[in-house]
Design a protein around this nucleic acid. Sequence first.
DNA 1: AGGGCCAACTGGTCTAGACGACTAGTCAAC
DNA 2: GTTGACTAGTCGTCTAGACCAGTTGGCCCT
Lengths: 251, 251
Amino acid sequence: MVDPTTESVRAGPLPRYHQLKELIRARVRAGEWAPGSAIPSERELTERYRISRMTARQALTDLVREGVLYREQGRGTFVAQPRIAQQLLHLTGFTEDMRARRQRPEARVLDAVMTPADASTADRLRIPPGQPVFRVRRLRLADAEPLAVETAAVSFPGCARLLDEDLAASSLYGLIETKYGHPLADAEQEVEAGAALTDEARLLDLAPGDPVLRTRRVTYTQRRQPIEYAVAVYRGDKYTFYTRIVRDGAS
Amino acid sequence: MVDPTTESVRAGPLPRYHQLKELIRARVRAGEWAPGSAIPSERELTERYRISRMTARQALTDLVREGVLYREQGRGTFVAQPRIAQQLLHLTGFTEDMRARRQRPEARVLDAVMTPADASTADRLRIPPGQPVFRVRRLRLADAEPLAVETAAVSFPGCARLLDEDLAASSLYGLIETKYGHPLADAEQEVEAGAALTDEARLLDLAPGDPVLRTRRVTYTQRRQPIEYAVAVYRGDKYTFYTRIVRDGAS
DNA sequence: AGGGCCAACTGGTCTAGACGACTAGTCAAC
DNA sequence: GTTGACTAGTCGTCTAGACCAGTTGGCCCT
């Protein structure tokens, strides 16, 4: 239960609309506002939290875009049904992904080098072919069983410093964002089905020809720079890829 | 080239922010504003189009969310690099999907019936098990070659009328949205790799055991009602699934 | 009882400002 | 030459209103 007498959205260093977002999210998550039921109207929020309507709308619009709420003109704003796997629909690295699936992630670094970008990598990272990139190949395990082989190529000024990191223990995304100061925004991913090659089969404990899921992903920073190009091969029998697709008004 | 003397965002029945969005999108698409270059500042747009800053910001914020633009505080708003396959990142039915890939789509209806929902379908459509749903199984072809077998279960009041539709020629999404008045918002999709079963192999012109891509999709209306649950099996050698994943602030 | 109008709500669009935070360039003081 | 202060420009947040558009329910008239 959230104590309504102590809540405020007018204090602290965080923007008011952001505080209101978290407050609504908390009530929804706590089940206090049930799926399908109406939340207070925008004008009611305005009075309750002493903020202007545009500020309240900014919070609600964000939550609608995230799929937490939905609006119906003339009727109100409502709590959306929870998603099948809410936590799996965001951009995460392998570590976060496995934790969300309640499996224990591990990584074994097969190799990590600075190497000239090949044509396909250079193209996707929008750099000249041959420019040195950091390339790391890791075997990924979930609950101590091999799940995927992932090869990531990373390019940003000073990326050679990644050679000194312990990538068996650290999340590559975490390092890029926090230690190297390149906050990530989104990624474009391609997914297809294929048959395991001989060396893939050996690493993944499969027979050659067994079904695998191949993914290629380009990750972009908030400044719209492609910073990582990752290719991965997942065991077909142990991994399901989740995504949310939006019906966009873009023409 | 867009004629700057005749442009206005203050006429017509469409909202001003929407007109401004399309105007900016057109300039970007025409290459008039190049990727990486700055577009006019918000205050400049304010004066040029005689609109208030909040209205201009609404247009820009939308375009940033769609990945057309990006902002840097203190510096300006810039044109993003174009996506790998812009058009494939939206929620589409098979027909639109194939057209975006420049392939000729066809469909053969294998069967179409009203049938009681099984447990898994009922669960995903949030209806009681056994409630009648419209179920259609279609063989999908691209450029006259078999590509996928898709089974869609649809549930809305009056969905039995779908029995009279020609689903070899019509887009199921198009019918649901336009003729039956249920605008779609988004979908949650699961993708995994597998091996073709005997009957799937026969329909898809594969050998049993060949790699296939299996997808399960729940499509939601703008009112957050699940309206379609579709399971599809794609030939692994002929189909790549594209998606965009957002690094979300949701906690 | 039925039909139609109207009032009171809801969200959707828009205005004309305000101040804060951040960036980048200039220029004076050291 | 380097540093630091200032300034002008950018986006980020926020206000207190306005009117439009769609929904709902009640009330009155027939």
